[in-house]
Design a protein around this nucleic acid. Structure first.
Length: 250
DNA sequence: AACCTCCGCAACCGCCAGAAA
DNA sequence: GTTTCTGGCGGTTGCGGAGGT
């Protein structure tokens, strides 16, 4: 492979767009593959991070609710810095987000609490059996990761794209995969490139999510309430991409 | 109005575990 | 059974914006 330098740093709008489409096409498992197919000069790792922390359609944005704060506090007291584990109890929140949040908010709060309340009644309580919050607030999530619960595959089929479903269902050999790479590069991916570069409004049947919304600092418009998120029986991937509204990227 | 400091967040790095060859 | 590869996780860093002086 030609040794082009691997890109690092902030993602561009175009990169997000490509990644979202490629993930929608091939799934969010084989990140090395996704990185190659997309033509992004990024590592699979980087692609995964971007998807998981930013592009995933199920992500919640905006401030943590009081309930979420409590939950984070309790679960952290229980599990420590197991951020991904904690994140699974807060659908729509990523480990990175919780980690950041903890650093900036919770630690401070916890310290304040420690000072105002006696230590024995503050954090230690949550690790005891008198901790109904976790069970009562997240009854069905115990065995399900966030992605299992509201993740990609389920919605993937909901898109009603047969070819895509087959791609997911089927177990791939490496031959299959490389065949797909060639096909994808020749057809769909190049179309994506072209569509994007032409700056046209694109109605891509496989479009994952409204990429342009990411840029405005909010994955989903929170004004309408968070009800727009986690609609298991509805299509979470609005099939639009209106570049004319896209804010500039950096 | 300009400068400085702090905060929030996106992204990277290194390590580890599990899967595949 | 061993080695290599890939993905996941936790820790850390750096940048940009907001707020304060």
């Amino acid at each position: 492979m030609a040794t082009e330098e691997i890109r690092k740093g902030p993602w561009t709008e175009q990169e997000d767009y490509l990644l979202a489409n490629v993930v929608n096409l091939f799934g969010d498992r084989r990140w090395d593959f996704v990185a190659k197919v997309s033509g992004l000069n990024r590592t699979g790792k980087s692609c995964r991070l971007r998807w998981v922390n930013y592009l995933h359609p199920g992500l919640k944005r905006g401030k943590m609710t009081a309930h979420e704060e409590r939950l984070v506090l309790e679960l952290h007291a229980k599990w420590g810095n197991r951020w991904s584990r904690i994140a699974r109890k807060l659908p729509g929140r990523t480990d990175n987000e919780i980690k950041n949040y903890w650093r900036t908010h919770m630690r401070k709060k916890a310290q304040e609490q420690k000072q105002t309340i006696t230590p024995s009644t503050a954090l230690s309580d949550s690790s005891s059996s008198s901790n109904p919050t976790q069970e009562s607030l997240s009854p069905d999530r115990e065995k399900e990761s966030f992605y299992d619960a509201v993740g990609f595959d389920a919605e993937f089929s909901l898109n009603g794209n047969k070819q895509a479903e087959e791609l997911v269902d089927r177990v791939y050999s490496m031959d299959d995969i490389w065949e797909d790479i060639d096909k994808a590069k020749e057809s769909h991916i190049s179309q994506l490139y072209n569509s994007f570069n032409e700056g046209s409004s694109l109605y891509c049947p496989m479009t994952v999510s409204p990429v342009r919304d990411y840029c405005s600092g909010s994955l989903w418009k929170m004004d309408d309430g968070e009800s727009k998120m986690f609609l298991p029986s509805t299509n979470q991937f609005p099939s639009y991409y209106d570049l004319s509204e896209a804010p500039s990227y950096g």
